[in-house]
Design a protein around this nucleic acid. Structure first.
Lengths: 209, 209
DNA sequence: CGTTTTTGTCACCATGTGGTGACAATTAGG
DNA sequence: CCTAATTGTCACCACATGGTGACAAAAACG
């Protein structure tokens, strides 16, 4: 019985996509540090020389991967998520919830951000750039929407809460509890959000006796 | 002229210490990921076979390094730093300042915690263990000192602020600004502390109109 | 058809890695 | 002083890494 082994047609674009898919899986499974030319070729099931031919370099793969990746929320989505807030504090509360949800939804982003704490590769740099740009955009839009900045250090406030959310999201990949809070469950994060709400409200309501 | 090249006396304990010193420098310079048997032997200026003989394994070096390392604050020091606080919120404020100062004072700890986000080695595990134990100790002591826990989720509050401080301290090794705040300078951190104070005070004073 | 370019396969290189065995130099013990 | 254990040096192994050149199979093009 002659099984006509169907030969895959030669297609450069398809091969490139195969490589980009593979690097996503690789980052997810072994982290950014586990990515190498040999490992990537093995994971993609192609010859490593094709990586050099099509992307020139491993960094070239990173750049291509960064371009077509959905690593961060869009500013318009953040604005929509906070649209129904009557004032700045409530917008911040909704924004923090949105940010946390979007982060936890992107495990590859979390993996890259984890690597960001130790190394600085083209991928982390690309992600950093996107993040800074979107944050700046958001700040402008928010300032226009809520002109009354009540002498509160908004950058410090959002920086602190954002850092906390980022770090807890990153660490939740490998640990379940952080300082007595279950960062692996929906309930645990709801608990955090309630406290965040309290902190934000309290900060804005400092004119109390 | 015959220079009598003084031969270093053979001393196992001294060699072990040389290795442990070298691994500290190595972690500081290249991060935990940059540590290998060959690199360590090179840095220490000894033969790598001695590493295997004296510590059995690279993990053995990690364990020995973890044992004689000063990676975290002592509970008694934290208690002393917050002793003059009249109530829980003020104790928390002082505690956060103390924690941040002690963290930023230990670059090796920051390096290990950065690696902790991606890998899990005997060193990171050892550090994790110490941290959990001290935190638990502190919680007990604090609960005894301030019995009035006003229906506030203290673990969530300290977890969030602690996570923010940890992450900002870790990232401050490689970046200068985080979301509009200068995390590389004393002034930047003072700005963060002021906001943290506001957040804590506000959280505890939620009984406002 | 024939020719040229592209796609993919394979063998190979130098180098770095973790790890081990043999052996000389130096101690310590009797 | 002689012997036995310890400390340190060196050569070596198998393997994985990043990277390159040669070459056959397939397309594209005239």
């Amino acid at each position: 019985m002659v099984t006509k082994t169907t030969i895959a047609p030669r297609d450069r674009l398809k091969t490139e996509q195969t490589i980009l898919d593979a690097i996503g899986r690789l980052i997810l499974r072994d982290g950014l540090a586990g990515v190498g030319v040999n490992a990537l070729a093995r994971e993609a099931g192609i010859d490593k020389v094709l990586i050099y031919r099509y992307f020139g370099d491993l960094d070239g793969v990173y750049e291509a991967f960064a371009e077509r990746g959905d690593f961060w929320w869009q500013v318009e989505d953040m604005l929509a998520a906070t649209a129904e807030a009557p004032d700045l504090p409530n917008a911040l509360k909704l924004g923090m919830r949105f940010h946390a949800r979007e982060m936890r939804r992107r495990p590859v982003t979390l993996s890259v951000m984890a690597a960001e704490t130790t190394n600085r590769t083209p991928l982390t740099i690309a992600l950093e750039t996107v993040r800074e740009k979107r944050s700046l955009d958001l700040f402008e839009q928010m300032a226009a929407r809520y002109p009354d900045n009540r002498a509160i250090d908004i950058p410090a406030l959002t920086g602190l809460l954002g850092a906390a959310i980022d770090y807890l999201a990153i660490r939740s990949r490998s640990i379940k509890r952080y300082g007595g809070v279950d960062v692996g469950s929906h309930a645990g994060w709801e608990r955090l959000f309630k406290t965040i709400d309290l902190m934000i409200d309290g900060t804005f309501a400092d004119a109390c006796p």
